[in-house]
Design a protein around this nucleic acid. Structure first.
Lengths: 111, 111
DNA sequence: TCGATATTTCGACATATATCGAAATATATA
DNA sequence: TATATATTTCGATATATGTCGAAATATCGA
């Protein structure tokens, strides 16, 4: 039997659903490789290591309303944080959840 | 930009799609906690650390045909291996893909 | 060979999802 | 205040998914 509670399993399933669309996964990877505070580059509330919605849609060949929809899904799953800064809305990856996902797949290999 | 090729991104998206259904995720976790050869218990082609389709459907409250469907999805995503042994079909987690998933979420935190 | 057990295939159906385009909202700047 | 830029909301549509039940297939044991 699993070490995870039922609600935790549902939460992980939500996370994986958010990452199950190739375009959404690309956005997530874009953020992961540039915008994880405290790891790749330091996060400064002023400077902000992050990307706005427009940045994430570039090179993806989908219209802004679809980008917005995908970002909302990533946010709902708890994968990213968002904050308005002027006209733009900045996004970055929540490092806590990233660590939790790493452990999810690591642990069965080490225990 | 991402370190992953387009086809790799699509493959990861397939994997996450396979794990995006709570029942399927439960089956995967069941296998992960009992049937990863070389880690949790040793894998022997004769003895076999694995679970059959019936085992995986137990406690899940879904009919066998649905279990079969879900297992096929996990297999198509490359997450599990299957082999007939008598009447039963045994399943176990591919440790290589598990390692790949751990790295997928680890690496942005360590580079 | 017959019956029991294990699993898959097939067809159906209800629900969810990805995407678009048009219109609305928020913010900055001239 | 008017205009430009950034983003969201809404409605539509085509496609995918989860689940079931019935029927088919595979294997074992009497």
């Amino acid at each position: 039997m699993s070490k995870y509670r039922d609600d935790q399993i549902k939460q992980f399933a939500e996370i994986f659903k958010a990452l199950s669309n190739p375009n959404r996964l690309r956005m997530f990877l874009h953020l992961v490789t540039c915008c994880v505070p405290g790891t790749v580059g330091s996060f400064d509330a002023e400077a902000g290591v992050s990307a706005c919605v427009g940045d994430l849609g570039r090179d993806l060949d989908i219209v802004p309303s679809t980008v917005s929809h995908h970002i909302k899904e990533l946010h709902r799953a708890g994968l990213i944080r968002m904050e308005r800064r002027g006209q733009k809305i900045e996004c970055w990856v929540d490092p806590v959840i990233l660590r939790g996902l790493a452990r999810f797949f690591e642990e069965p290999l080490t225990t």
